[in-house]
Design a protein around this nucleic acid. Structure first.
Lengths: 250, 250
DNA sequence: ACCTGAACACCGTTCAAGT
DNA sequence: ACCTGAACACCGTTCAAGT
């Protein structure tokens, strides 16, 4: 038999098959309970082939993390293109982050787990660099938005903070709220009475009011504006959430 | 030989020895690289005995997480007793959270890893309940502080938020900032120019200003007040940090 | 050139045998 | 009553043998 020469395309398709198999397992059993054996059993290739694509378990996890960022990038970009004021779009981006967490719980968990020195150490340099590149693009969306707001005078930087710090502050807000309420994102238990979309909305207003980013929350009905924007930009995502029995409740 | 009867005290001492051994290993190699074998090798008891105390690896991790909360509880309580205004003390509590993350990186990492369904599922009910109890006490400190502020009129609840939501918002702020900058908490690399103590200070001001919690940041010099309070309440912790070559820099 | 799966080292957990 | 460590099932990774 003539030796096979694999083209880039089929190699990438195979890589995606492995990632998808891992994601399905993660969704069912959680990141910690997934083994390479189980992944191999789910794909049409052998162990050796899987290890040809990923140098190990951590490298696979990082690849999944990168896929997560790619999906977020799409959501964030769409949100940033909405024809509303800058502050409105900032809120919309943060809500798109929530959609990602709700609609892709396995990706969300994987991305969180992949952000650890242990994973980076054991991964390919190539994939670590890919993550850095993707994160730069993500940051770029925020930077552009903040720059626009500064340009149209709805926001001015506080004297002791630069754009990167504002960007980080907004990011850590969404991250804190969504990751801490992530268990409730899936289950409807609601043991404590905290509703993630409500807290995200309120904290966003408090934060942006604190920054004096106009229009302030008492000057504009951001709740109505957000509902409108969600319908328009994330209609498909809302429908998928409704199908999962998870409707936004604020 | 007469059969031994173990008293509660020596049992607890042994449990602590195992926890300490695990923490030392976690500090050196990270949570993911610690094995039960390594822990057993470090203590003066056998595998079977270790498994008498902890039903498994996850149960041990949760025990460490509970110890972490206990230490935080002490720091938070001390901060809450400082004779300053309520807003000042809120800031001080958030900084005590940062101290905990810097001075006890192994505990901090373990506590983060222990907050996962996978860990709870595989742990003793007893230890899960202990964690819930400790977290209630932690919340209590925040609740008391917020109540005081409401009582002395420096703060009024927004119409659409209750105390639990304010409490959670403050918690998620500290969690977001500190956990995202945790790698920089240890290493001095500072690749991006974000300094965790500076971001924590700024975001606290923005958040509390946004809540209209008085005195507002332009009405009072919180930086000077914080420095004073830190010297007074956390002098020992500051000294230990200085010994580690980690001085606060805002 | 590419794929396979047996083989190996290691890890978490148990429990029969000891004192 | 309590402790031990050999034994077992399982997991991550490698690589000699195949096509």
């Amino acid at each position: 038999m003539a030796p096979k020469i694999l083209d880039e395309h089929s190699l990438q398709a195979r890589e995606q098959e492995i990632i998808d198999a891992a994601l399905a397992l993660i969704a069912r059993e959680g990141v910690a309970n997934v083994t390479m054996d189980k992944v191999v059993a789910k794909v049409s290739y052998s162990k050796g082939t899987v290890y040809k694509h990923f140098t190990g378990k951590e490298d696979l996890l990082l690849a999944i993390g990168n896929q997560a960022i790619t999906i977020m990038l799409d959501l964030f970009f769409r949100a940033s293109q909405y024809p509303g004021c800058a502050r409105e779009r900032m809120l919309l981006i943060n809500f798109s982050y929530l959609f990602y967490a709700i609609l892709h719980p396995a990706l969300f968990m994987s991305a969180m787990c992949s952000k650890s020195p242990n994973v980076y150490e054991k991964s390919t340099i190539k994939r670590v660099q890919e993550q850095e590149h993707l994160e730069m693009k993500l940051m770029g969306i925020f930077f552009n938005l903040i720059e626009e707001a500064i340009a149209d005078k709805s926001f001015t930087l506080p004297p002791d903070m630069d754009m990167q710090q504002i960007c980080f502050a907004n990011w850590s807000l969404g991250y804190g709220v969504i990751s801490l309420l992530a268990d409730e994102v899936e289950s409807c238990s609601g043991r404590t009475g905290l509703v993630v979309e409500r807290e995200l909305f309120n904290q966003n207003n408090i934060f942006l009011d604190g920054l004096r980013w106009g229009p302030l929350s008492h000057e504009k009905d951001y709740k109505a504006g957000l509902k409108e924007a969600l319908e328009q930009v994330f209609g498909e995502e809302l429908a998928r959430m409704k199908a999962l029995g998870r409707e936004l409740n604020f």
